[in-house]
Amino acid sequence: MSEIIAAILIGIGVLFNLFGCIGLVRFPDVYTRLQAATKCVTLGTCLTLGGVAIYGFAGGFGAMGMKSLLCIGFLAITAPTAAHALARGAYKYGVKLKEPTVVDLYQEVEPQPTSIEDEETETT
């Protein structure tokens, strides 16, 4: 029984990871891609680890389940922090928000340097 639950959880997790990766390809710019990467990949990996934990606890209160649970905690804390750092770094480096963007209030406090992508298109 617990093996079936574990398999279902791992399956859902992999599915979310897949959607995250599709988002990574389809979305237009760095920031929207980070959205797909952080949300789907974090929850997907957490669910996969949860499945592993249930599988591990089925055979006794052993090390495998416990370590998976700890990994969930670490991942849930570090993944958003890393995404935050990446988004801020990209903005400060001058990566522009792409076409469908409607509003950018961050411009007020942090004027962007000239876009690198513009320079690249001029030379090519």
Binding site: F19, G23, Q35, K39, L97, V102, Y106
Partner: peptide
């Protein structure tokens, strides 16, 4: 996650990003 899933799979990608 369900929202991102919907946006990713929608053929027109109805996103309206901004800060």
């Amino acid at each position: 996650n369900l929202q991102v899933m919907y946006l990713v799979l929608h053929p027109d990608m109805p996103i309206k990003p901004g800060i």
